[in-house]
Simulated assay, not measured.
Amino acid sequence: MNKIVSNDEWLKALAAKVNDEGPQAVAVEGHGRYMLVSETEFQRLSERKPTFKEWLLSGPRLDDVEIERDRRPARDFTF
């Protein structure tokens, strides 16, 4: 049989379940489902990630690298 618990007890039990098992879905009548995650998981998910351009620009400098193009044709061809 279900035991009646206070809101505080229910929330503590849910928080323990999040710590033990990971994110938990909570259905709220009339509002759909919500996911409950730990604060550290929330911060990890919401941190700003660099754009592709920022990622490329943060790479190593290639100023000292000399690249020479091979002038030979890639393959023989005729018209």
Rank of each mutant, 00 (worst) to 15 (best):
T51I: 07
M35P: 00
K53F: 03
V37N: 04
E29T: 08
R48F: 07
E39S: 11
Q43W: 07
Q43P: 01
L36W: 00
R44A: 13
E29A: 07
L36Q: 03
Y34H: 09
T51M: 06
A27E: 12
F52L: 15
T51W: 02
T51S: 15
E54K: 06
E39T: 13
L45Q: 15
K49Q: 13
E39P: 04
E41D: 14
R33S: 15
Q24F: 03
R48L: 13
R44E: 12
H31T: 03
F42L: 12
T51H: 04
E41H: 09
Q24I: 06
V28N: 02
Q24V: 08
S46A: 14
K49W: 07
Q43L: 12
E29G: 01
E29M: 05
L36A: 09
Q43Y: 09
F52R: 14
T40F: 04
R48Q: 14
K49G: 06
R48G: 07
E47C: 14
E39D: 14
E41I: 04
S38K: 00
E47D: 13
V37C: 06
E41A: 09
E39Q: 13
A27C: 08
P50A: 06
V37P: 00
R44C: 02
T51P: 01
A25C: 04
V37H: 02
L36M: 13
M35Y: 08
M35S: 11
F42Y: 15
A27W: 02
S46G: 05
H31A: 10
K49E: 10
R44P: 00
V26N: 00
E47F: 10
R44V: 04
S46N: 13
E39N: 11
E41L: 11
Q24P: 01
P50W: 02
F42A: 13
A25R: 10
V28I: 14
R33M: 12
G32F: 01
T51G: 07
G32Y: 05
T40K: 14
F52I: 13
H31S: 08
E54T: 06
P50C: 08
F42Q: 09
F42H: 12
T40I: 06
K49L: 14
K53T: 11
G30Q: 01
